[in-house]
């Protein structure tokens, strides 16, 4: 447990020293602000603002905030192990009296915890802003996605993207290649989500599958990391 905490502190210090910690501000600030701008823009497209309902505004806000958090997740998870492996600085950590799982777990606690945390904070900011700019009306049609479900699905998606990117970084020993893999995973997931939505077959099963695949990728990452030959 001490080794996990030591590595969590080390990851936090890396984020601070590399200034990557400022990335975490983006979903919190830019998510709600970007959403507000979108609400104003789409709200003015029709004289009565009918293009954007309250439910659709929430969806839009969650997509904006989730997209920004996704980019942060890709970056931080690719670098959490990939940077060390690419630079060969993992040799220092691996020769210390600690399990490699502790190294990875400590780092991921910070990366996943921080990214999912800032997405949640940013997403929670979307609700009051949407309420203020695009109030809910009794005549509003039912939105495509339930906002609460979408929020949970976004958390699953972020977890999935982080796990896949981490896995790719351990396989390729390169953060840049892992980033590409993460972006591709995101594109494929978005395409699949669009396809099932088009068929009206999207359900909570989709984020659940993402969660399971993410968990498998994460477990595999731990196994590979533990057995990496230096």
């Amino acid at each position: 447990m001490n080794a996990v905490l030591a590595n969590a502190r080390w990851e936090l210090l890396r984020l601070l020293r590399s200034r990557r910690i400022f990335l975490l501000v983006i979903p919190v600030i830019a998510g709600p602000i970007g959403s507000a701008l979108a609400f104003f823009y789409f709200g003015k497209m029709e004289p009565n603002g009918a293009v954007l309902t309250h439910g659709t505004a929430l969806m839009l806000g969650l997509f904006v905030t989730g997209g920004l958090a996704g980019m942060v997740m890709l970056d931080l998870s690719a670098l959490s192990a990939g940077e060390d492996l690419a630079r060969r600085s993992h040799v220092i950590a691996f020769a210390l009296p600690q399990s490699r799982s502790s190294v990875l777990l400590g780092r991921l606690l910070v990366v996943f915890g921080a990214t999912l945390g800032v997405f949640s904070v940013g997403a929670l900011g979307v609700w009051p802003i949407a309420g203020a700019i695009v109030p809910a009306l009794p005549s509003d049609p039912h939105p495509l996605y339930d906002a609460t479900h979408l929020f949970l699905a976004m958390l699953s998606l972020l977890f999935f993207l982080g796990a896949v990117t981490l896995n790719a970084s351990i396989i390729t020993k390169s953060s840049s290649e892992a980033l590409v893999a993460g972006v591709l995973a995101g594109v494929v997931t978005a395409a699949a989500a669009f396809y099932f939505t088009y068929l009206h077959q999207i359900s909570l099963l989709f984020p659940e599958v993402l969660l399971v695949v993410g968990a498998v990728a994460l477990g595999w990452s731990f196994l590979r990391f533990e057995r990496l030959e230096s």
């Binding site: 060390d84 690419a86 220092i92």
Partner: peptide, 8 residues
């Protein structure tokens, strides 16, 4: 070993 250049 490689090192992280931005760390003291």
């Amino acid at each position: 070993p490689g090192v992280l250049p931005y760390v003291r």
